[in-house]
Design a protein around this nucleic acid. Sequence first.
DNA 1: CATGAATGAGTGTTCATTCAT
DNA 2: CATGAATGAACACTCATTCAT
Lengths: 213, 213, 213, 213
Amino acid sequence: MSEILNPHKRERRKQHRPGELLEAALDLFVEKGFAATRSEEVAARAGVSKGTLFLYFPSKEELFKAVVRENVVKPVTEGALEFANYQGGSGALLKYLMLAWWRRYGSTKASGISKMIISEANNFPDLAAFYQEEVIVPAMRLLNDVLERGRSQGEFKNFNTDHTAMAVIAPMLFLIMSKHSSALCHAGSKQMDPEEFIAQHADLLVRGLSASN
Amino acid sequence: MSEILNPHKRERRKQHRPGELLEAALDLFVEKGFAATRSEEVAARAGVSKGTLFLYFPSKEELFKAVVRENVVKPVTEGALEFANYQGGSGALLKYLMLAWWRRYGSTKASGISKMIISEANNFPDLAAFYQEEVIVPAMRLLNDVLERGRSQGEFKNFNTDHTAMAVIAPMLFLIMSKHSSALCHAGSKQMDPEEFIAQHADLLVRGLSASN
Amino acid sequence: MSEILNPHKRERRKQHRPGELLEAALDLFVEKGFAATRSEEVAARAGVSKGTLFLYFPSKEELFKAVVRENVVKPVTEGALEFANYQGGSGALLKYLMLAWWRRYGSTKASGISKMIISEANNFPDLAAFYQEEVIVPAMRLLNDVLERGRSQGEFKNFNTDHTAMAVIAPMLFLIMSKHSSALCHAGSKQMDPEEFIAQHADLLVRGLSASN
Amino acid sequence: MSEILNPHKRERRKQHRPGELLEAALDLFVEKGFAATRSEEVAARAGVSKGTLFLYFPSKEELFKAVVRENVVKPVTEGALEFANYQGGSGALLKYLMLAWWRRYGSTKASGISKMIISEANNFPDLAAFYQEEVIVPAMRLLNDVLERGRSQGEFKNFNTDHTAMAVIAPMLFLIMSKHSSALCHAGSKQMDPEEFIAQHADLLVRGLSASN
DNA sequence: CATGAATGAGTGTTCATTCAT
DNA sequence: CATGAATGAACACTCATTCAT
């Protein structure tokens, strides 16, 4: 009804085009990977023609970068914001951020983009570099900041930053890969609750970081 | 014996061909993945023509399966053998197997095959099924056997098998992905010693499994 | 109408493409057979690139089926229509249909498709089945109907349907094979007038079918 | 047993090699045609290696020519011999030769060679020329001689040689094509006895040739 | 004589990107 | 702005023929 009353409908559609294309591209990149996703299929799923896709995004690579900016950079930025405003203890903060990251990103379709990049980085160095800059570096900086916050507040002691960072990342990466690869999704990981898994892991880590020895 | 004494060039080459091709294929599958590896390049790297490759392996898929059998199935089988003959405690056994697996497989080029399968399983269901059957199932069985050994000996208590299996696998998977994806290999993981990482993780796990509560 | 008034080049080309490709494919299938016809050559003869061919026909097999529908099914359908509307005697009808079939099909390039299918049916079972269904079955039904019409009108007597059908087909098949195979086209058949040959044969047949004994 | 007693067995096999290869080649050429027959399969069916085939026949084309000489030229030569020695009437001779040709050649596997040549002559001009010279020309000469014998004896009258030759050949060609192409072998031709078909046709022809008008 | 390993040109089909309309 | 027709390089796999052993 609103469509009939609103004469700007087509214009609204037009303005939504990039968003619809991004949505379609996200779906397909996650489902098939970068190389195996055909640009025609992206266009078709967004309900436009092949030519239109290249009107908004000059190449498949640029389309991918836009998908990353829209879906992957955001959660990191949000995490950074919450970090800046957080008042409580660093252990609780770390656990909170890990769980928030899972709820907002890891558990969503978008996390397939991380799986995709890890899978195909070797074949697309430009994409890898872009992802490195826009995602990995900020995320690692945030993680580092959390650990340093804990150290300077005296809550975390005697830890090796690199090892600890790995220990934070490893289980989350594992969950992502399990979620998006049929090679892992049957490896018993289906019977497991990811949030519980992360919570347990976070507790384990915080306990380790807080120990005196 | 006569072969050693009578090193006809053609004959010597022939017997080495499959091995040379397997070696080249391993390199390229690890470097570029399954889809992006061109059969002609495999042949070229092995120093033969395209046709020769198909003389020894009827298709790219069969070539891949041979690579898996040669490089991935073996370490699992070896682990199972050592498990059968092991005499000591189950905690030590678990730690030993994790480290042995890393030294014999994870740290080698061959582990890139695991990364490859996880990356492309969705696009190649037949390959995924093959890998599932030949690698994942036996490996999970071995892991399960180790945990059950610990339980029946009273060394491991009160653990959830699935969760624990995930906790064993996650860090090793993380190391593999880091080693073989340029998207991760700069994520600080280069400064870390994998064996130490595994050892620490194994200790953490064993402590958790041995705890009374 | 606007198309005629507004002859945009691209548009005009587009609508003619399938026809041009079908024409080129007919030429080449007749000239070289199915297996020996390269899709690139079909495209080149139609003045387009290889890719364009597959824009209109999803595979060489489908291209062939389209060629059959366009060039072979039609004459049979036309014959069936004329049969339905025919008023005169059955002997005259049989002779008329045989000659019409020759003029409309046998004497044209398109009849090379029949030669082609007979030649390669063993190697392409799917194509053979398609041809069987779309061409042979309707054609045999028509022939049968003509003979039954003659029997029910009392004009044709005491004939074995199968033998007679063969006797109708054999000379026409012979003419087609002669026309399209260089192995036969010099066998003296060049000095012969096909229409006269068919007319004579038809007369012979009708006389036989009309004989009392 | 005889093999054990006969030390020359291997030598006998050797001498039979060409024959075994010819036999295998005949089978495969008839089954799949010239282009689609792989030389390796010919060798395999003869129980020798690919190299051996090329030891006896310098190319696939030469192999084919040998098959023709062995299997197709012979029946024509035999027919010519019988013609030379025949004493009776020319009508009976024509009928006899037609039936003999069917029994000795048309009904055998070897007749597939004629189907094959007709099918592929356009793609292999050298083969077509060879077949023309070695088979078609002698066969047409024999047929011509039979007709001329009838004319000079006053038994055959008022006939057009070319038309008559076609009328003799057409049904036999039809039988061969039916026998060797799946596109025709279901066209009702299975219910028919070839010898009877030929006999009827021969009678029809002879009656026509003997008629006064 | 016999082998079979090796070659490499050839074929059907796909897909990112361009551009005339 | 939007379309979709057109391109052509790429890629897995085949096979007649050669030749070292």
